[in-house]
Design a protein around this nucleic acid. Structure first.
Lengths: 143, 143
DNA sequence: TTGTATATTGAAATTAATTTTCAGAATTTA
DNA sequence: TAAATTCTGAAAATTAATTTCAATATACAA
């Protein structure tokens, strides 16, 4: 954990930006999250801990965290972006119900194998991937 | 081409909706596009052909086309959605270079087979999917 | 056909996520 | 410590997307 924070500090400094308590607090909060998040839930989560951090600061910090490889914007739903922590995670797929918004994560070795094969057959270097499947969950397909 | 239009008509009727010239015109225009598009470019393209179709109708029709599997929302850029025609196209994936931003499309039937297998093994109904692989392109991996 | 119920349209108003503005506060470096 | 610069929160602004509404078009039954 702490070495990630330190790495972020270096990343910020190296870009000629200032390392502020707000930026660190946002990163710490995100790293403590298990699940996906969006700006609203992150903001409320921080507020619950009596943080004074504004949404504007969150909106300003997220692109830095994406650039630093800490998080990724994984999908848009309900008109806004959803992010997930990408560090320390295996690549996986998401199933997203377009009706109720349910998101299900899954791992599949066949998918991993296939993507590894893609890599071997290419001149690219693969770092991570995102497979999003949109459709209807068992509940919503019945209606 | 015409059988796709006919299929769309059936799709609309089957949903209990009305088949309007506007909906058909939007579909025809989209099917004639080679590349990715967004609402603005589609609107301007239609306007150039003296179409009276409003943006509201475009916004109302695109979700139907997504649901029908004609198009996919592939990414957000500049704050708005970009779509691509998915019919007549082999299922494909995007490789995105995190260094230079290059986007490359690739085809693979094994991926499609695998996703169809996921669907059979699940209780979900899959409407569309999107695979993005992030990494370094041949140029950028050398640096 | 004609009539009726219902859905759709364009234009304008509205909504909501995100971005920007701005003045005061904090950080950095010398 | 001072000067230069960036950052912050709050509010205003922006803008993609959605909704409203009255007029019109479609579907379908009689």
């Amino acid at each position: 954990m702490e070495h990630l924070i330190e790495k972020f500090r270096q990343f910020i400094k190296q870009k000629g930006l200032k390392y502020t308590p707000e930026r660190e607090e946002i990163l710490r909060e995100i790293l403590s999250l298990e699940d996906h998040f969006d700006v609203e839930s992150l903001y409320l989560q921080l507020k619950k801990k009596n943080s004074k951090i504004s949404k504007a600061s969150i909106y300003r910090t997220l692109p830095l965290l994406v650039e630093g490889g800490y998080i990724q914007e994984v999908y848009k739903q309900g008109g806004h972006s959803h992010y997930e922590v990408t560090l320390n995670k295996q690549p996986h797929l998401h199933f997203i119900c377009i009706q109720c918004g349910e998101v299900k994560e899954a791992l599949d070795h066949r998918l991993n194998n296939l993507i590894e094969e893609f890599e071997r057959q290419s001149k690219y270097r693969f770092l991570t991937y995102h497979l999003e499947i949109f459709g209807l969950c068992p509940n919503c397909r019945e209606v």
